[in-house]
Design a protein around this nucleic acid. Sequence first.
DNA 1: GATTGTGAAAGCGTTCACAGCC
DNA 2: GGCTGTGAACGCTTTCACAATC
Lengths: 227, 227
Amino acid sequence: MDGQRTRRRIPEATVARLPVYLRILSEQFDDGVTNMSSEQLADFAGLNAAKVRKDLSYLGSYGTRGVGYEVEYLVYQIRRELGLTHDWPVVIVGAGNLGQALAGYGGFGDRGFPVGGIVDVDESKVGSLVGGVRVRHLDEVAQVVQSRGISIGVIATPGAAAQEVADALVAAGVTSLLNFAPTVINVPHGISVRKVDLAVELQILSYYEQRRASAKAATLHAVPGAR
Amino acid sequence: MDGQRTRRRIPEATVARLPVYLRILSEQFDDGVTNMSSEQLADFAGLNAAKVRKDLSYLGSYGTRGVGYEVEYLVYQIRRELGLTHDWPVVIVGAGNLGQALAGYGGFGDRGFPVGGIVDVDESKVGSLVGGVRVRHLDEVAQVVQSRGISIGVIATPGAAAQEVADALVAAGVTSLLNFAPTVINVPHGISVRKVDLAVELQILSYYEQRRASAKAATLHAVPGAR
DNA sequence: GATTGTGAAAGCGTTCACAGCC
DNA sequence: GGCTGTGAACGCTTTCACAATC
């Protein structure tokens, strides 16, 4: 009577790990592995077994006590849960350095996210081929999105343009955004946004480097010559 | 008597947001803004004011009640805490599509992370110029790292090579890794790793897209024609 | 009057530990 | 005997709410 509707909600942290399990399980399956325990999967993923079991339990009870998980079946279940049973074409906004690298990367299409379109505001780029796809003008983004049934947009523009690009994508009907621009974007409720920010990642690493450096300095100072 | 040594530890979640505050504050400062409240900063960062205040409180009591935070001083304090008072040259491993895009991107050096070296195993790439830096062989990575005093390595190789590259970087003396390869890497205790994985991000978006789609289908089914 | 700084409460995610099942 | 599935405990993060301060 309720079926899909009351579908158990999966915690965000778990959703973020499912793709990792999926990749590992797929690789193992290709290597001929048919069964895995939570312990083995945890080792590959760099996690502990309890976390893996809890994560997988949100999908349902697909393991066998005393035995483990059947790799092929688990791959199928994770793919289904992640909505990877069909392709999700994406539109890339920004045909600069990054946009071109993303389009040319290939790992996109392979994994079920073919590049359905690339747009830019720069007239000198419009019409050129990037990764086998012809660049169109940002003004035509709604047409690109609608004709290809695209729901995921990738923002690969400078930070200053990111918000208006996000607005244009949402207006065109896109409901998920992957933002590479170093800017926080505002979107209406119900739109998903993921952000990838190089500078932020490096600055986080810098923090821990700096701690290491000052911890070391303090130790040297406190116990000169020791150790 | 203890000074730096017993330096208050900042929660990971806060460390990850400090770079965002820093960017916003720097931009505002450049625009002539000299003072900001937690509320204003929260709006720019897409967060709430309480979180901003709690985050900033880990740095010390740098605000003024009834007034807010002095932008310039806060920029200085965050930069200091993040260890951004000096440059951190990085070494990029992998001169393929992604490595070239990263090296050519520029946003690296601008933000205090100049490309101190690029290495690859492909002899046909060794010797060529990428983003103004000459590509050297992976075998020479230790020399590159040591001569430039590099502590951050960027892995931009295919997944299959990532673990051995990580091992080589750690052996060379690198203590922080930014991993773009779609593989979990194992490192000794005390080494920091951050991971950026395109496919994972897209698959997370796919999950929410798929939920939206099935929620919509369920609604249409439950109340045909309504709304 | 405005806004910070922070204890306390609530919420979320991880880990433990063991009953349940093969 | 081995391994899953999961309540319960724990710890981290967010949010609340208000006293302290300008």
